[in-house]
Simulated assay, not measured.
Amino acid sequence: MNIHPTAVIADGVKLGKEVTIGAFSYIDNDVEIGDGCVINSHVTILPYTSLGKGCRVHSGAVLGDLPQDLAYKEEESFVKIGDNCVIREGVTIHRGTKLGTVTSVGNNCLLMAFSHVAHNVQVGNRVIIANGALLAGYVQVGDQAFISGNCLIHQFTRVGRLAMLSGGCAVHKDVLPFCTTRSVSLNKIMGLNVVGMQRAGFSSEERLTLKRAFKVLYQSKLTLPKAVARLEEEFDSPLVTEVCEFIKSSQRGICTYISTKRQPES
């Protein structure tokens, strides 16, 4: 245990083994910090927040503050952060709004400087959220998604597994698994996240299958229900099934496709 003498730690804090807490950090009651965590200087961790093992929290981060939601009624709610997460400078993660609800971040996530995770957000495993990205309340982010700098995600929007949001885009419709959005755009998908799939170990056959499915979905001129029906009929692939189930469970609709090919000059 390595705790700086200027750190303030409440009596009700549960500290794991070999925890480091830096200068002028404040750890309030009902906080749990797992084994091997490093809490740098000037970090604030507020009640009902838990961190798993091996996390590193950088200066100026505030974890577990009250939700920025006028519906909040001072009820007990939580922030739960998994193992081996890196939370950089100035990150804010807020508690759930309703009684007993949770804002959660999975394992092995990287939240870069000044990103914001609002109340009741659910972030999967191995997610990267880059500098200045803002996730509004009740957003869901699938495993291994990459959210680039200064992205804006509207409340209740879902980002699918291995999706990549390009820099500065905004979405208030669901982003399909394995797809990538266009930079500085609204609700526009420009193709598949091929690099992300390669890094995740997808085979060339799996990538080709998703490419064929993408063409049916976005370039066949079928209506969305008919495109989904065709995918379910023609493809025997768990990845395509995942995409279809994501679409069918969407409450907000899905992002539309925009070609990145240069348009002919008039």
Rank of each mutant, 00 (worst) to 15 (best):
I3S: 03
I3F: 05
T6S: 14
D11H: 12
L15I: 08
V19Q: 02
V19N: 01
T20P: 00
T20E: 13
N29S: 15
G34T: 01
I39C: 01
S41M: 08
S41N: 12
S41Y: 05
T44G: 09
L46E: 13
Y48S: 09
T49W: 08
H58D: 09
A61H: 12
E75M: 12
E76G: 07
V79N: 04
K80Q: 13
C85E: 03
E89K: 11
G90A: 10
V91P: 02
H94C: 10
R95N: 08
T97V: 15
T97R: 06
V102K: 13
T103Q: 09
N107M: 05
N107Y: 05
N107P: 03
C109W: 00
S115E: 04
H119A: 08
N120D: 15
G124A: 09
N125D: 14
R126T: 09
I128S: 04
I128A: 07
A130D: 06
A133Y: 00
L134Q: 11
L134V: 11
Q140G: 00
V141N: 01
D143I: 11
D143A: 10
Q144T: 12
Q144N: 14
F146W: 10
G149Y: 02
T157Y: 06
T157A: 09
R158Y: 07
R158P: 02
V159F: 01
V159N: 01
A163S: 02
L165Q: 00
L165Y: 00
S166H: 02
A170I: 05
H172L: 11
K173Q: 15
L176S: 04
C179F: 05
I189T: 08
G191H: 03
N193A: 05
N193G: 06
V195E: 13
G196C: 03
Q198N: 12
R199H: 08
E205R: 14
R207E: 09
R212M: 14
A213K: 05
F214W: 09
K215M: 11
L217N: 09
L217C: 10
K221I: 02
K221R: 13
T223M: 11
L224M: 13
K226Q: 15
K226E: 15
A227S: 12
E232I: 12
S237K: 13
P238F: 11
E245W: 06
I247Y: 07
K248L: 13
S250Q: 06
S250H: 04
G253P: 02
S259F: 07
S266M: 08
